[in-house]
């Protein structure tokens, strides 16, 4: 571990906030992507069956 000195809380806090925000964004993106893909596939299957 590198020595962050007296500003350790500041630096780590900034990185933590960034990682948290990016994680929320990435998870939201992936989740909505998966939901849409599944719903679209289900819809396409249903329409293929009923013509």
């Amino acid at each position: 571990m590198v020595g962050l000195g007296k500003y350790a809380a500041t630096v780590l806090g900034a990185y933590a906030v960034t990682i948290l925000l990016l994680a929320v964004l990435v998870i939201a993106t992936l989740r909505r992507g998966r939901v849409m893909r599944e719903r679209l596939e289900a819809q396409e299957r249903r329409m293929a069956r009923h013509g």
């Binding site: 964004l25 990435v26 993106t29 992936l30 909505r32 992507g33 849409m36 893909r37 719903r39 679209l40 819809q43 396409e44 329409m47």
Partner: peptide, 21 residues
Amino acid sequence: LVLLRTRTEIRARRLRALEAR
């Protein structure tokens, strides 16, 4: 992220069109 999200938006748009049809 933009590529991923744009793909999702295109799918959402297509889903909407299919449901309407």
